[in-house]
Nucleic acid binder design. Structure first.
Lengths: 137, 137
DNA sequence: CTGCATCCCGTAGCCACTACAGGATCAAGC
DNA sequence: GCTTGATCCTGTAGTGGCTACGGGATGCAG
């Protein structure tokens, strides 16, 4: 499938952006991607703007932004509407969520590694991991 | 509801272990909790062993273990079956997952905080957050 | 004009819950 | 014994962000 000048099939779009083909259709279904033109037979025909939009979404997802955040960011990224303050609010709210999760995971890592270390250390009678899970925390 | 000597309602079990009541039923449905005895009217009647088991599960969930891991841990924690090596394998596999996620989140935190900092800094022409999302990474 | 890759749509599954709806049961007060 | 209100019951559907099917249509090279 070649799809004329500046026209991409969904497969080409997916390959170019390294986004799963079914994910692209999912984004369209939830209204994150605008419905593209269609061929006579009903196949989707994408244009470069779609590629850029998918790339934007992919980058935002890679940074952990949720779909609703991305929806808002896409609106704010529209030409003539670049409100940096609102963008920064979304980003810094997300950043503090990331920091919360980070703190949580750091705590888990400390507890788990300490307990597993006890296991691989000197031959103890009972299992340190099970002991910890049994005991009140 | 008082539920005789050593008998708990699901509500009491949930309150005692700080696990959501509906989550307790969910654990029973997926076979993580054994079905308790019932009153004449069909209400669940729990015993102290159930409280200990829910507490174990809660501790393991708080450490981020998945349900299937917990299922295995509960089997290994059964009396006469304490195989510390298998427990340690599960725990250290989980620990390395935690470390992977930690590395990922740390990366996100660095990128996001750097970008948001650029935002609150000197008055720049465009939005650093949107610029990053638009640019190839 | 045949064959095969790619595409279409719709639905169901993943994880670990959580939130209902619509009804039954329990225990206490009168 | 009866009412009241808290608690309990079952079953189903929703969350987020995809992913994986099944059963068919289309596109294009040979």
């Amino acid at each position: 499938m070649v799809m004329g000048p500046r026209g991409f099939t969904i497969g080409q779009l997916a390959a170019a952006t390294e986004v799963n083909l079914e994910t692209v259709r999912y984004y369209e279904r939830i209204g994150l991607m605008p419905p593209p033109a269609r061929t006579e037979g009903g196949h989707r025909a994408y244009e470069p703007a779609h590629v850029r939009r998918i790339a934007f979404i992919r980058h935002a997802r890679a940074l952990g932004f949720g779909i609703e955040d991305i929806r808002a960011l896409l609106t704010l990224a529209a030409p003539g509407h670049r409100s940096c303050a609102e963008v920064r609010d979304i980003a810094s709210a997300h950043l503090s969520e990331v920091r919360t999760k980070l703190a949580h995971l750091t705590r888990l890592e400390r507890i788990l590694s300490a307990t597993v270390d006890q296991c691989s250390g000197a031959p103890t009678p009972a299992c340190p991991v099970l002991d910890m899970l049994d005991a009140p925390m």
